[in-house]
């Protein structure tokens, strides 16, 4: 299982990266969206570097994405076991040192379990799995992953989960609002009972971002809703790293 094809040999799913900026995409047992995330990274013009959960080594990547899925079968709590995997030790250390980290869906759950982001994710209030396009408002366009958007911009990207209800205590919610750390909010309808319609948040420094909806599924006009509203996540990081 450790021998995964490199992006160069995987081929046929998008232009290969220019090789300047390396974005790691972690695969845990049970991860589903690692290939789509790697492709989104390449479409944005970066090199996608597959990372395996058992390797502490991040292969000198400039940023890391924790993709969606059901890592470790969501046993115990979504993201609870992944948090203790060897790769996460290094990710936590590097994230604290400023490396950009994006957690999508299950990746967001992992980031809350590591306490890199506050709060927690619980079962949707209606108990159903949801899979649909979801409208969001970008509230914070200053993070490493949202710099290509405008504050207040409305985007539509797929949402698919059963454990998507964001919760935190009132004090934490007030702090997130006051510090502008609510990065994305659900628009029109709250799909899962998330407090204050929160779809995604950022850490104080803006390098660690987590959200439940899936930007990596909205990067090509031929696929899905035909919108490419999610591509900005991956081009944001390039802009950020190139200008750094």
């Amino acid at each position: 299982m450790t021998a995964r094809p490199s992006p160069a040999t995987a081929g046929g799913d998008g232009p290969s990266g220019r090789g300047n900026t390396r974005v790691g995409v972690i695969t845990f047992p049970g991860t589903l969206d690692d290939r789509d995330t790697q492709r989104a990274v390449r479409l944005a013009g970066a090199e996608a570097v597959p990372l395996w959960h058992r390797d502490k080594d991040l292969k000198q990547v400039d940023a890391v994405v924790l993709p969606g899925g059901f890592s470790y079968g969501d046993y115990l709590r979504a993201g609870a076991i992944s948090r203790f995997s060897p790769v996460m030790e290094t990710v936590i250390e590097q994230a604290r040192a400023g490396m950009p980290v994006l957690g999508i869906c299950n990746g967001f759950q992992v980031l809350t379990e590591t306490h890199l982001l506050p709060g927690a994710m619980l079962r949707n209030n209606h108990l159903h799995f949801i899979c649909r396009d979801q409208k969001l408002r970008v509230e914070n366009a200053n993070t490493s992953w949202t710099a290509e958007y405008e504050a207040g911009q409305e985007i539509s990207i797929p949402l698919k989960n059963i454990d998507g209800r964001y919760v935190a205590d009132e004090r934490t919610l007030d702090m997130l609002e006051a510090e502008g750390r609510v990065a994305f909010r659900y628009l029109d309808t709250n799909p899962n009972g998330s407090l204050r319609d929160i779809a995604g948040i950022t850490n104080e420094a803006g390098n660690v971002v987590g959200l439940m909806p899936h930007p990596e599924h909205a990067v090509e006009p031929l696929i899905g809703s035909g919108r490419t509203d999610g591509l900005g996540f991956f081009t944001s990081i390039l802009k950020k790293l190139v200008n750094a």
């Binding site: 619980l122 079962r123 949707n124 209800r165 205590d169 009972g193």
Partner: peptide, 12 residues
């Protein structure tokens, strides 16, 4: 779950 956290499974 803490008392203040909604438990929809328990409610069901």
């Amino acid at each position: 779950l803490k008392p203040e956290i909604l438990d929809p499974q328990g409610q069901a």
